[in-house]
Amino acid sequence: MSSFRNTHQHNRKKANNGIEVPLLTQWLILFFVLGLSGLFFVYLKNQQHAIGKQTRIIEEQLVGAHAHNDALIAKITGLTSRGALQHKLDEKCLDLVPIPETAIARITMPASSQEGDGMRTASVSLNFK
């Protein structure tokens, strides 16, 4: 009887599917890593979209700042144009004061026939940017 019970117990033990913990752990880790990778992928995509939005906003701000700058430059150009200055002269907001020849101290000699072909002018040539 005792040996029968022992044999029976042994057989039942054999008949049940045993949980193979290492294998299960292996699979769980695999699924966990895959799931985590998927989540990480989604997270990265979201981050990319968020950065893309920020990029677009910054680009718009940059374009706006450029346009604003250009508008201000154009305004300054208009206000300092010859026509505007002439208008200010006519309105007596500005005045031209003649400088007598005796009050002019020349630090460079005037252009003469011996000098090169370049014409010397009152203002300085600007280097082109």
Partner: peptide, 12 residues
């Protein structure tokens, strides 16, 4: 012009 004075510019 030859001294860099703006003669035609763009306004946004």
């Amino acid at each position: 012009d030859r001294h860099g004075e703006a003669l035609a510019v763009n306004v946004p």
